[in-house]
Simulated assay, not measured.
Amino acid sequence: MSYPAESATTPVVETTKVPGPERRTIGELVASLSEQFSTLVRDELQLAQVQLAEKGKRLGTGAGFLGGAAVLGLYAFGVLLAAAILGLATVLPAWLSALIVGVVLLIVAGIAAFVGKKKIDASKEFQPKPQEGFKEDVDAVKRGIQK
C-alpha cells in the first residue's frame, strides 16, 4: 500500500533556550521594588478615580430622582395643608384654622432643625482616614520583602 508523499518542505521549528533564574544585585532589586511600588500606587489611584466616577454617576441619578420626588412631595404637602385648613374651617373660623395649621408646622420645623443640628454636630466628630488603604499596601510590600 502506498501513501501520498509528504511535501518536500517541512516546517522547521526554532527553539530558544530559556534562561535560568538570574542573580540580581540589591540595587536592581531596590530599583525593581521602587518601580513596582510606584506602579501599585498609581494603579490604586486610578482605581479610586474610576470608582469615584461610577459612584458620582449613581449619586447623580439618585439625586435627580430624589429631587423630583421632593418637588412632588412638596406639592402634595401643600394640598394636604389646604385640606387640613378647609377641614378645620368647617368647625372654626378660616383664619383660626390657618393659624393652627401654621403653628403646628412651625413646631414640626423646629424639631426637624434641632435633630438636623444634632446630626451635623455628630458628623464633625467623624474623621475619615484614607491613608489606611495605603498603609495596608505598604504592610503587604513589607511582608513580601521579609519572605
Rank of each mutant, 00 (worst) to 15 (best):
T61A: 10
F114A: 10
F77E: 10
F126T: 01
K129R: 12
G78T: 08
K55A: 11
L66N: 13
K119I: 14
I111N: 02
L74K: 04
K119E: 06
P128G: 00
V50T: 13
T90V: 05
A113Q: 13
K117T: 11
V103H: 08
F114L: 13
R58I: 10
A83I: 05
D137H: 11
E54H: 11
A48M: 15
A113L: 12
A69H: 04
K119P: 00
A82P: 00
I120E: 07
L52Q: 14
I85N: 01
A113E: 12
G64A: 02
E54V: 09
Y75V: 15
V101L: 02
K57F: 04
T61S: 04
A70T: 06
L74T: 11
L66S: 11
G102H: 03
F114V: 09
L59N: 06
A122N: 09
A113Y: 14
I120A: 09
G73A: 14
A84M: 06
K119Q: 13
V103P: 03
G133L: 11
A94T: 07
A98S: 08
E54R: 15
V91Y: 01
K129F: 03
G133T: 06
L96R: 04
Y75E: 13
K57P: 00
G102K: 04
Q131Y: 12
V138R: 03
V115R: 14
G62W: 03
P128V: 02
A94L: 12
A70K: 09
L52T: 12
A48N: 14
Y75H: 14
Q49M: 14
V108G: 05
G68N: 11
L81M: 12
A84F: 03
L106G: 10
G110N: 09
V108M: 13
S97G: 11
L92H: 06
A84D: 03
K129Y: 04
L52E: 14
K124P: 00
A98W: 01
P130C: 06
V104K: 02
V104I: 14
G102N: 05
G133R: 15
G64M: 00
V138C: 01
G64Q: 01
Q127N: 07
V138K: 01
F65T: 05
L66A: 13
A76Y: 13
Q49D: 15
L86E: 13
A82R: 09
V104D: 05
V50H: 15
L74M: 07
A112F: 09
D137G: 08
L74Y: 08
G62H: 02
G67F: 05
V115I: 14
L74V: 04
F77N: 12
K119F: 10
G62D: 07
D137N: 10
L80S: 10
T61E: 10
A84K: 01
V104S: 08
G73S: 12
L52R: 14
L99A: 11
A70P: 03
G78R: 12
K118Y: 13
P93D: 15
S123Q: 07
A113S: 12
A53Y: 05
V50I: 12
A89R: 00
K117A: 11
F126P: 00
L86V: 04
E132T: 05
A83P: 00
A98F: 03
V91G: 01
E125S: 08
W95R: 11
K118S: 13
L92S: 03
S97F: 02
R58A: 09
I100W: 01
L80Y: 11
F65I: 06
V108E: 14
A112T: 08
L80I: 08
S123V: 00
A76F: 11
V103M: 12
